Amino acid sequence: MAREVTPRYTVPGLTVEDAGSLIEVLQERLHSLNDLHLTLKHVHWNVVGPHFIAVHEMLDPQVDRVRAMADDVAERIAALGGVAHGTPGALVDGRTWKDYSVGRADAIAHLGALDLVYTGLIEDLRAAVKKVGDIDPATEDLLIEQLRDLEQFQWFIRAHLETAGGTLATAGATTEKDAAKQSVSR
Score class of each variant (00 low, 15 high):
Ala107Lys: 06
Ser32Ala: 15
Arg148Gln: 07
Arg126Val: 11
Leu26Thr: 00
Asp72Phe: 08
Lys181Tyr: 07
His51Val: 05
Asp93Asn: 06
Gly120Ser: 06
Val129Arg: 11
Ala70Asp: 05
Pro7Leu: 09
Asp124Glu: 12
Arg29Pro: 13
Ala171Thr: 13
Val11Ala: 14
Gln146Asp: 11
His160Val: 07
Ala78Trp: 06
Gly103Thr: 01
Leu14Cys: 07
Gly120His: 09
Ala107Trp: 09
Asp141Pro: 07
Leu111Val: 10
Lys181Met: 04
Asn46Ala: 07
His37Met: 13
Phe156Val: 05
Pro12Asn: 06
Phe153Met: 12
Ala79Thr: 05
Thr39Tyr: 14
Asp136Met: 15
Gly20Ser: 00
Glu162Lys: 11
Val16Phe: 02
Thr174Tyr: 07
Thr6Tyr: 06
Leu59Ile: 03
Asp72Leu: 13
Leu26Cys: 09
Val184Asn: 02
Val11Cys: 03
Asp141Gly: 08
Thr170Ser: 14
Met1Cys: 07
His51Ala: 10
Gly86Ile: 04
Thr15His: 14
Asp60Tyr: 04
Pro7Val: 00
Pro88Ala: 08
Asp18Arg: 15
His160Phe: 15
Leu168Glu: 02
Gly165Pro: 04
Ala79Pro: 01
Lys131Tyr: 02
Thr175Pro: 07
Asp71Lys: 10
Tyr118Asp: 01
Gly103Met: 05
His85Met: 01
Arg76Trp: 01
Ala159Leu: 02
Ala127His: 11
His37Pro: 13
Asp64Arg: 15
Val5Thr: 10
Leu161Gln: 12
Asn46His: 12
Asp141Leu: 11
Val73Tyr: 00
Asp136Asn: 09
Gly120Trp: 03
Val47Cys: 00
Asn46Lys: 15
Asp72Val: 09
Met69Gln: 14
Ala128Gln: 10
Ala127Ser: 12
Arg104Ile: 05
Ala105Ser: 08
Gly103Ser: 11
His51Trp: 11
Gln27Tyr: 03
